[in-house]
């Protein structure tokens, strides 16, 4: 049984977007803050910090989770995916991001990384989804600009189970 002392930074290692990383975290450091401040992966956004808004959603071992409701130490040895892993660069977006672009599915963009990581976890299952299922999944992510219609349309373009007219 290991005890990590308060205020003392201990090493944390996990796979971030396919690359092994190491950083140092206090026991109380949230995974969201570890990603942003220790690893410089600031694509993961932080807003409510109590699990309601979904802006900080990342994928841990293939499941969409709130990175503000996880300690950095709990990510030890896990496979963590963030928004930085969805594209190969500024000019080479993945299909979800391309669909968001095409459908004007963001305005201020603050919630977008969380939205995309929720949808990426659906994509990871390899099956298609109905609009109702997509809306149910996205109910865990709050957007205060778009009214969601364009986000759902973009998600349906990539994940939808209906053939488009």
């Amino acid at each position: 049984m290991k005890i990590l002392k308060d205020g003392v930074k201990a090493p944390v290692t996990f796979s971030l977007n396919g690359e092994d990383i190491e950083g140092y975290a206090e026991p109380r450091t949230l995974l969201s803050d570890f990603l942003r401040h220790e690893l410089g992966a600031s694509g993961t956004h932080v807003a409510c910090e109590h699990g309601v808004c979904g802006a900080c959603t990342v994928s841990v071992d293939g499941k969409a989770v709130r990175s503000c409701l996880m300690l950095a130490a709990q990510a030890e040895g896990k496979d963590v995916q963030t928004i930085e892993g969805l594209s190969k660069g500024d000019e080479d977006f993945g299909d979800l991001q391309e669909a968001f672009h095409q459908r004007f599915a963001l305005q201020c963009g603050f919630c977008t990384p969380g939205m995309l990581m929720t949808l990426a976890s659906l994509k990871g299952t390899g099956r298609s989804y109905s609009e109702a299922e997509i809306r149910d999944a996205l109910s865990g992510n709050i957007c205060r600009c778009t009214g969601y219609r364009e986000i759902v349309d973009a998600a349906l373009d990539v994940l939808g189970d209906q053939v488009k007219a």
Binding site: M1, K2, E26, R28, L30, E49, L71, A73
Partner: peptide, 17 residues
């Protein structure tokens, strides 16, 4: 907000807890 400082015990068994 952020949590107040605490010690973190990584339990390996129910007996540890």
């Amino acid at each position: 907000m952020k949590p107040a400082p605490f010690d973190l015990c990584l339990a390996e068994s129910v007996a540890d807890v």
